[in-house]
Design a protein around this nucleic acid. Structure first.
Lengths: 208, 208
DNA sequence: TGTACATCAGTGAACGCGCGTTCACTGATGTAC
DNA sequence: TGTACATCAGTGAACGCGCGTTCACTGATGTAC
């Protein structure tokens, strides 16, 4: 059965329009960027009337929150994978996590932007990033704890985590600029460049 | 003579509307944030018809560019001051510059945002940040060169500059979140917190 | 010094646009009896 | 098993809004003679 046929026989009730709207929003982000992300555009992309989203989200903000949520979860998965990979290879765990973070931002620049924009609107880090057990932030802090050992004060672990997060976020935002192209080439591509910059950031250099 | 009287006798021709529009835009940014920065709002704030700006700027983008330009110049001044101050006190020059950078972003959060948004739209760092002799970026690179001495390779100075810039930008963007409030208090306020985080970033620790 | 005229820098009304949201509606679904 | 009915999840038309931009215009200024 072709996609068209499926579309033709699409029932009046969608089934999981909530999820479909979030997916549509992400598709728009990847294709046209954050500027194109209106509620109407999302409904259009999902093949539904502009009023339909209101049965699943209070307003535009709530839809955006849901999109950001999906983004943070995907980022968490990417970082967890990187951590697992790195400990197997006994390389620098922190660098691998950092690289995966920045690479995520480069693979999904518009989504990454929305993730932070939603947080900024509330002056709050996303969804208890510091509290939840399996949050991306806790993953980084856990890695620092593991690398540092027990004799290091909690406060220093916290500060190192914040410093690393800031550096990662800054690198994510900066590395999109064209001016760095020659430098990237000199280091054999994006990843080489990322590793070179990260190696200049003290707290990424500790090894397990 | 009161301000009202000045306003009443305001001549048909403005004198320096271009500059007045940029000032009005910055006032809007400080008061209402980047979301409120429309061309019409700027004209309104400057007390002029919505068509007037078109005699001074090709379009909205060009006005925004002018605003960003003013921002980058102000940031450059703040950083130059910090550098001068620090060498007088023989403290860590790089930390002082870093602190001044982040403080600027906190004093003018909306302007700081516009400065980067304008660059992002073009995928280019602002106004030849890397080329111009007195750019903020060159100031940082110069500081690194001075601290590192002649034996360090140019490439390493470049990478350290980029790493520092990323860290500063990341810290600027992160430190606005409410979650860091308790940590800031623990370090005796904003500046103490900034210094604590920066001290965890390797390349800020070198002293003259 | 006075006058004609080109140019500059404003006005204000209007354009079309896409937006977020609301509304009365209707088709589909599930449940009680 | 059938039927009545409440509820759910859509439709599509409409709302008012502020936006960027254009237009014909006009008042002020400066310059040539």
């Amino acid at each position: 059965m072709s996609t068209a046929a499926v579309a033709d026989t699409r029932p009046y009730h969608h089934g999981d329009l909530r999820r479909a709207l979030v997916d549509a929003a992400i598709r728009i982000l990847e294709r046209e960027g954050p500027g194109a992300l209106s509620l109407r555009a999302v409904a259009r992309e999902a093949g539904v009337s502009p009023a339909a989203p209101y049965h699943h989200f209070k307003d535009k903000g709530e839809l955006l929150d849901a999109v950001a949520h999906v983004g943070w979860e995907a980022l968490g998965v990417a970082m967890t994978d990187a951590k697992a990979r790195s400990s197997a290879e006994m390389g620098s765990m922190l660098t691998e996590i950092g690289v995966s973070y920045v690479q995520f931002s480069q693979d999904h620049p518009a989504l990454y932007r929305v993730m932070y924009d939603c947080s900024r609107d509330k002056d709050m880090l996303p969804e208890g990033i510091q509290d939840k057990e399996d949050s991306a932030y806790c993953l980084v802090r856990g890695a620092f704890k593991q690398v540092a050992g027990d004799e290091v004060a909690d406060m220093d672990v916290e500060l190192a985590t914040i410093a690393a997060w800031c550096a990662g976020h800054g690198l994510a935002e900066m590395s999109m600029f064209k001016q760095f192209a020659p430098l990237k080439e000199a280091f054999g591509g994006e990843e080489g460049f990322l590793r070179a910059v990260l190696s200049h950031l003290g707290m990424f250099n500790r090894k397990t």
